[in-house]
Design a protein around this nucleic acid. Structure first.
Lengths: 347, 347
DNA sequence: TTGAAAGCGCTAACAA
DNA sequence: TTGTTAGCGCTTTCAA
């Protein structure tokens, strides 16, 4: 009753050998139908399940994939995970998700735990702190070991590894170009500190679009948001500018939504007085009033693609040395926060 | 070089025994300082890490906790996970997160994978489909096996298991009572289908508050949202009522935000023409215009508490038979979407 | 058709 | 101080 269930106890109780039970469980045709049935009945009755640890240790294969994300709250990461899960489950793999909290130490710890037995491959989006520290040792070790790993969205610099990202420069360009097309002349940007590559790249695209339109980027209009300090207060500074910008490009949904809120509090009409465009097409962008124009990142597709090339590496070990770099296209989603009168005037 | 790293290969390469290496790695004082150093140097050089599968199999202990959530996108679940992670990491445990997608089969599969070796204990919030099917066999098996498990937020009915929930009836009551206090007379509710206990309970609280205020609950004002169909269209029906309700209680943030959006589209002012209150104090509630009044669920605290009683079970096996049921208090967060003129009139 | 035995990579009691 | 050995729970080859 209270003895633990293992092949051994089952074998003893049934008067057969361990290997017979094991084979019966796998429906091997080495075992006679009668014996099989007797064993299966017993096994079902007591509710035996093989110990995965032992199975994986023996098989040297777990059929599970580890995922490390900086945080879970972001709609974008959740979408990537869903995409990855979708692809993985069709291929018979399960997902184990962990979060780094954007901390280097936790990321290192999770990487080690997962890659030392728990999973067959790893999908990771790198923690902010790892970029700050410029320390990707825990990943280069993996690559040296030929452990299958694919980065998504945020990939470490200077590591020859496979990755699936979006073209953030292009995304930033598209967003800014759209504002320009809508008639904006003083376009501010709410971006990340420069060491976060996705923010830096979107900022590059912003500058490119400005220059192309004949506007000189103005450092007073560039806000590097430090998330360790209150975000709202940093965005609020935008509204003390003189003259006020007539458009804002926020590099994520959160900053865009807060801008909308602060604009309303300042009595500014969006898009008439101020146009706002965000990044990531999540639930928030759709549900604000006015709804937010944004750059869709297609997280689900990113997750699927990342999993696809990861499984390729796992199943075909020869492909592991040739790093692939896939770019998922972005696209502009026009909504109320930028669909201004300007457009009509121009046409 | 390309041979795989194990205690055995290290021992061979260094001309010592496996147990010597193992002991050195654990800094045992059975091993001489010189030998230790020699081994540690080698180990660091080649970057050896013990195989967790083997360690866990041997120790019969993994120091990791499994978490199963219906989905990750919800801010609330992310908060619970953060709270759980926070408590767990202080106690030396790691978290492995999986999602059921609100599907019974996936939930069953994840439960089995995690509880057959991978983790020492399980934290779960039950999938919608499991409630629909009324099938909690995968959990009752666990409880029979005395496997440490604690449910949070959504616990299975009729299972004597430990759980940490909020008092949803009370939460629904508080939300509705607040609307009544603000002068609302025709209060609609956007809730879940009846088999989802959290929705059903919030609806109970809604009815209780109405009756207490002398209003008869009106089934025309009760909307059971089916998430398998387009949500927005279902909420839109609310705006075709005649007379229009003067307040809406939405049982989650998403429905509340969509109501706000639809109200704006219908030209209704919030809160003047329509008051709206939500549930869960996430980023969305704070960033809409007007900001959303809501019932805070304190997900972080819920996660911490759930982990606390789970670890208690794990460390003190004797406590495993006495199911604990903890209720995390909720509280009203008043914001713009309900702070109407009525309040002033009444006082 | 069934069973014995080796081994996956590690720990730990015991022996030397 | 170091090594031998058994064993965690399972799979699989080989022998019976």
């Amino acid at each position: 009753m209270s003895q633990k269930l293992t092949l051994k106890t089952i074998a003893t109780n049934l008067g057969v050998s361990v290997s017979t039970v094991s084979k019966a469980l796998h429906n091997s045709d080495e075992i006679s139908p009668e014996t099989k049935q007797r064993i299966m009945e017993y096994v079902n009755e007591v509710g035996f399940r093989p110990n995965n640890l032992a199975v994986s240790l023996q098989r040297q294969r777990t059929m599970t994939i580890g995922v490390i994300v900086p945080e879970l709250v972001h709609h974008f990461f959740s979408r990537v995970i869903s995409g990855a899960e979708n692809y993985a489950s069709h291929a018979g793999y399960k997902l184990l998700i962990t979060m780094s909290n954007d901390e280097w130490e936790k990321e290192r710890q999770m990487t080690e735990m997962l890659t030392n037995g728990y999973v067959d491959g790893l999908l990771v989006s790198v923690a902010k702190q790892s970029f700050e520290k410029r320390n990707f040792n825990h990943f280069s070790t993996l690559i040296d070991r030929r452990f299958p790993v694919v980065f998504f969205d945020r990939a470490p610099n200077g590591l020859s590894a496979s990755k699936v990202t979006i073209n953030d420069v292009e995304g930033g360009y598209k967003a800014t170009k759209h504002l320009v097309d809508q008639g904006a002349k003083h376009i501010a940007i709410l971006t990340t500190p420069p060491h976060i590559s996705v923010g830096a790249d979107r900022e590059k695209g912003y500058k490119k679009a400005l220059l192309e339109a004949g506007y000189e980027p103005d450092s007073n209009l560039i806000f590097h948001i430090d998330e360790r300090a209150p975000i709202k207060a940093q965005i609020a500074k935008l509204f003390t500018l003189n003259p006020l910008p007539d458009a804002v490009f926020a590099v994520n949904e959160k900053y865009a939504a807060l801008t909308l809120k602060l604009a309303a509090q300042s009595g500014l009409r969006v898009p008439e007085d101020l146009m706002v465009i965000g990044f990531t097409d999540g639930f928030i962008s759709k549900s604000t009033t006015p709804s937010l124009s944004t750059i869709a990142q297609h997280g689900f597709e990113m997750g699927e693609k990342a999993m696809e090339i990861l499984l390729e590496k796992i199943e075909d070990k020869s492909s592991i040395n040739t790093p692939k770099s896939i770019i998922i296209p972005t696209n502009l989603v026009e909504r109320e926060s930028t669909s201004s009168k300007y457009k009509i005037v121009q046409k």
